Simulated assay, not measured.
Amino acid sequence: MVIRHNIPVYEICWLNYAQGGVIGTLYEPENKEELHRLCCMLYSEHKSFEIIGHTSNVYFTPSFNANIIVSTRKVRFWQIYDDYIYAECGVSVRQLSREMVEKGIQGFEGLVDLPGTVAASVYGNASCFACSINSLLKTAEILLPSGDVVEMSPEELKLEQRSSAIKRGEVEGVILSVRLKKEVGDPLSLKRLAEVNHIKRKTTQPSPKDNLGSIYKGEQKRTILGYVIFAAAKIYRGILKTFGIDLPSISIVLFMLGKKSLIPYVSDWNRFIWKDKESHDAFWEYHRIHQLLFTNNEFEIEIK
Rank of each mutant, 00 (worst) to 15 (best):
H5P: 14
L15Q: 11
N16R: 11
N16V: 15
N16Y: 12
Y17H: 13
G21D: 10
I23K: 02
P29Y: 01
E33V: 15
E33I: 15
H36L: 00
H36E: 00
C39V: 03
C40T: 08
M41W: 02
L42Q: 03
K47V: 07
I52N: 04
S56E: 02
S56L: 06
N57A: 06
F60L: 07
T61F: 08
N65A: 09
V70G: 07
T72K: 05
K74A: 15
K74F: 15
R76S: 15
F77Y: 12
W78P: 00
I80A: 14
I80D: 15
Y86P: 05
A87I: 13
E88C: 11
S92M: 08
S97N: 12
R98S: 13
M100H: 13
K103V: 02
I105V: 06
Q106P: 12
Q106N: 08
E109A: 04
G116S: 08
T117E: 03
A120N: 09
N125F: 09
A126G: 09
A130F: 08
S132Y: 07
S132P: 01
N134L: 11
L136D: 04
K138F: 01
A140Q: 04
V150Y: 14
E155K: 13
E156T: 10
E156M: 08
L157H: 04
L159V: 09
Q161V: 15
R168A: 12
E172P: 07
V174H: 03
I175V: 05
V178R: 00
V178M: 01
K182Y: 00
E183V: 12
V184P: 14
G185L: 00
D186Q: 06
L190N: 00
R192C: 12
E195C: 02
E195D: 08
H198I: 12
T203R: 01
T203A: 06
S207E: 09
K209V: 15
K209M: 09
K209P: 00
G213F: 08
S214Q: 10
Y216Q: 07
G218S: 03
E219Y: 07
R222A: 02
R222H: 02
T223C: 02
L225F: 06
A231L: 06
Y236P: 00
Y236N: 14
R237D: 06
G238Q: 09
I239V: 14
F243G: 04
F243Y: 08
G244C: 13
L247D: 15
I250P: 02
V253K: 00
S261I: 04
S261E: 13
P264N: 04
N270V: 02
R271N: 04
R271C: 08
I273W: 05
A282Y: 10
A282Q: 06
E285Y: 12
E285K: 11
H287G: 11
H290R: 00
H290E: 06
L292C: 13
F294C: 03
E298C: 10
E298I: 11
I301S: 01
